[in-house]
């Protein structure tokens, strides 16, 4: 079964996916809300930027992140000037990379969910003197619940499978930045197919169960909505 090193990598992977998902839900909510309701001329530009990680090879993201996090780069330079430690090869660095990498998987379902609510429930609440925050938390958020479930699970599952970005900025440090996909790659490259099988099977089952959860629960939500 899994070796101690593989188990550590599994824990790191789950932690990374969990932290990334929480950050993405927090950042993604206002962004998706704005995208769902805005008629601003810059909206298509933001839409396109949010969708970019869907089509870009992760190595492109990783490459730019590596340059940006380095001492000459925008983020790395900033960190250095405020006296903070650089972010490459750290768990925090991986979280930043994963947030960008999984952004569309969280923002797009939320955006669709918010758009699906339409204006009428919110306008009705407004006539009952509900303030904007009240309207958001009592009307929009509960109605967008299936969207949140899809967003959370897709964001989590997509981060589980992250490889290219981590390969570029992770540095493969056990217990800190060595995630499961990298561990599998190492096993395959060093011809240890038995271990590669064990770890791959864990990831396969985990991903399947997560996706199954989304589809089963979403079906139930839809039935309730009808």
């Amino acid at each position: 079964m899994l070796t101690a090193a593989d188990t550590t990598a599994l824990v790191i992977t789950l932690q990374l996916a969990a932290v990334t998902t929480v950050v993405l839900l927090l950042v993604g909510t206002p962004l998706a809300w704005w995208l769902a309701r805005s008629h601003s001329p810059v909206k298509p530009v933001i839409d396109a930027i949010v969708a970019l990680p869907l089509v870009l090879p992760p190595t492109v993201l990783g490459f730019y992140l590596l340059l940006a996090l380095g001492p000459e780069g925008a983020i790395g330079g900033l960190m250095e000037s405020i006296g903070a430690k650089p972010l490459a090869f750290t768990f925090t660095g991986l979280v930043i990379g994963s947030v960008i990498y999984s952004l569309p998987f969280v923002v797009q379902p939320l955006q669709d969910a918010f758009a699906g609510i339409g204006r009428r429930p919110l306008e009705a609440a407004a006539t009952l003197r509900a303030g904007p925050l009240d309207r958001f938390f009592s009307i929009a958020l509960p109605l967008a619940r299936p969207g949140y479930l899809t967003a959370a699970v897709l964001g989590f599952a997509h981060t589980l499978g992250e490889f290219g970005v981590v390969l570029m900025i992770g540095g493969n440090i056990p217990g800190s930045t060595q995630v499961l996909s990298i561990a599998i790659y190492d096993h395959v490259e060093s011809l240890q197919y038995g271990q590669a099988h064990a770890v791959s099977a864990v990831l396969l089952v985990l991903s399947f169960v997560l996706l199954l959860t989304v589809y089963v629960l979403n079906r139930r939500f839809r039935v309730i909505r009808l």
Partner: peptide, 15 residues
């Protein structure tokens, strides 16, 4: 993952 990437980690200033 290979010596090329190790070199690049140093060349980019990250290590």
């Amino acid at each position: 993952e290979n010596i090329g990437q190790a070199y690049q980690f140093v060349a980019s200033g990250n290590a």
